[in-house]
Nucleic acid binder design. Structure first.
Length: 482
RNA sequence: GGCGGCAUAGCCAAGUGGCUAAGGCAGCGGUCUGCAAAACCGUUAUUCACCGGUUCGAGUCCGGUUGCCGCCUCCA
């Protein structure tokens, strides 16, 4: 079996075959940097992060391009409100993007172009579109003529005649067809602007992606991704421009991720339920968020609720606990190893079951289920800890490797258990380890003397400090309450 | 109005016509333990919103009903 992906353009699952065997070019629409990223941005970023990781784990040489939209109406408006330059505002939010995404362990793309770095090429593309008769000037603006391109609407499954967009046209616009969209917008006072054959102005939103994707990946490339809301008009228009201007096929596979709702409501400013990554990270450990965000299929809507996220925190904790015990038995694992191997693009040894799940349109829910099945196997072996045979130990070592390699494709189990437990603990108060150790030792003393009451008192004290004890055959271990 | 999606146990969720409907969380019973915790074992959907149909066989395909959601306007 090989990788099958749902191609929005075909509205069907299709076997994925790159243009060139072993090489994959992927372009993903990034964010418009005028505000902090929210949990929906995180989902999108994680979906494509996992896709790229998996393509690499299969041994592909992947070129991953993700843009920043750093010139746009919203940026200009926000900058004006804050009395800041649009460039500074965009710069600040690009930094914020990295801060947040780094915490979620989202890999950097290979190319992260900004719209403002490619204005010249956009002007060139607009010029070509005018020459070819796909675009026209109207006043100081330039519009794309949707009727000039046969098949416009095919990507998003719309017919021009169905799209009664007349009511959306602002007075004063001189479009030939209501669906025509701006390629170049004439400059307004005090806004970012560039010289062009049509006077000073700035490019329309869709232009940047047509130009930057084909610049880095060629006129026909493998995968284009983004949130499902971008399908229309953004992706439709992006493709129309590129196909009309360059004649290539543009993207061959279109992948769109579903939305995140919060308590069953779409996030919106008016509802005040915008959950930024930053705020979510105040409540949950980044690995827990990641686990939650990949726990269902990427095309399904995902509802963010406290109880749902917390369920995954419990599950992830169980995985890390097993890791901790394996480290104790086998010696500590180097927690960077899985990831660093895969970043080189070498094929990873992935178990068949895991591969089948991922091959099936990136079924991360099933992939996670595999992790738990593996966990059960491992725990069964550890259960006999007192008498582990050589073959048990090597089974355990194999199991650990498999578990971590698979998890690394999902971006999970990437840190040491100690770091995870420290980070995931409810109690933010720093523990005095020496104090804990002393109490544990006192309790061990009491238990030796069978002073159960005293022992239980100490256990209660520790519990209140946020420490949970486990009495095992090799003595008492403790960890922070989760 | 146009286009599309979803409805599976207490909750989340996989299931892309055919062995006993994954997995997680929560609960319950058991093993272990001084008692716990953790772990393991067992258990919790004769049934997949409802009604018809196709088929030897449907959660899975088709039609209808109900309910929810998204896009069509900036949006991941």
């Amino acid at each position: 079996m090989s990788l099958t992906l749902y191609n929005t353009a075909a509205r069907a699952l299709e076997p994925f075959t790159p243009l060139e065997k072993g090489r994959v070019g992927i372009y993903v629409c990034g964010v418009t940097v005028y505000d902090l990223c929210h949990i929906g941005h995180a989902r999108s970023a994680i979906v494509f992060d996992v896709l790229v990781r998996y393509l690499r784990a299969l041994g592909n040489d992947v070129t991953y391009v993700r843009n920043f939209t750093d010139v746009d109406d919203k940026i200009i408006a926000r900058a004006k409100d804050l009395g800041e330059s649009p460039e500074d505002l965009a710069g600040r939010y690009i930094e914020a993007f990295y801060t947040d995404m780094d915490q979620l362990d989202i890999m950097r793309a290979d190319r992260e172009p900004r719209a403002t770095e490619h204005i010249e090429a956009m002007i060139d593309m607009i010029r070509i579109l005018i020459e070819k008769g796909n675009a026209y000037r109207a006043g100081d603006d330039v519009y794309f003529a949707v009727e000039s391109l046969p098949g416009y609407g095919a990507l998003s499954g719309r017919k021009l005649e169905d799209m009664k967009a007349g009511s959306r046209i602002a007075i004063g616009e001189q479009k030939r067809h209501p669906m025509d969209f701006a390629l170049w917008k004439a400059a307004k006072e005090g806004e970012p602007q560039w010289d062009s054959p049509w006077g000073k102005g700035r490019p329309g939103w869709h232009m940047e992606c047509s130009v930057m994707s084909t610049h880095y990946l060629g006129t026909t490339f493998d995968i284009h991704g983004g949130g499902e809301d971008l399908l229309f008009p953004h992706h439709e228009n992006e493709r129309a421009q590129a196909v009309a201007a360059l004649g290539g096929e543009f993207a061959r596979y279109w992948i769109h991720n579903g939305f995140v709702t919060v308590n069953s409501e779409k996030m919106s400013k008016s509802l005040g339920n915008f959950l930024t990554i930053r705020d979510a990270l105040k409540l949950y450990h980044p690995q827990v968020l990641r686990m939650f965000l990949i726990s269902q299929h990427y095309r399904s809507p995902l509802d963010f609720t406290r109880s749902a996220v917390e369920a995954h925190r419990s599950g992830l904790t169980r995985l890390y606990r097993a890791l901790e015990r394996m480290d104790a038995i086998l010696g500590p694992w180097n927690y960077d190893q899985g990831l660093s191997k895969q970043l080189k693009g070498d094929a990873l040894p992935l178990p068949e079951e895991f591969r089948q799940a991922m091959d099936d349109d990136l079924n991360t829910a099933r992939a996670v289920a595999f992790l738990f099945e593996k966990l059960k196997e491992i725990n069964r072996i550890i259960g006999q800890e007192a008498s582990l045979s050589e073959s048990d130990r090597s089974l355990l070592a194999e199991g650990r490797e498999e578990l971590i390699v698979c998890a690394s494709v999902l971006g999970l189990l990437k840190e040491s258990p100690a770091a995870f437990f420290e980070g995931v603990a409810k109690d933010t108060v720093t523990l005095d380890n020496a104090e804990v150790e002393r109490l544990v030792a006192d309790r061990t003393e009491a238990r030796k003397k069978k002073e159960w009451k005293r022992a239980d008192e100490i256990r209660d004290i520790l519990k209140k400090m946020g420490v949970v004890l486990e009495d095992g055959p090799k003595g008492t271990t403790w960890h922070r309450d989760v």
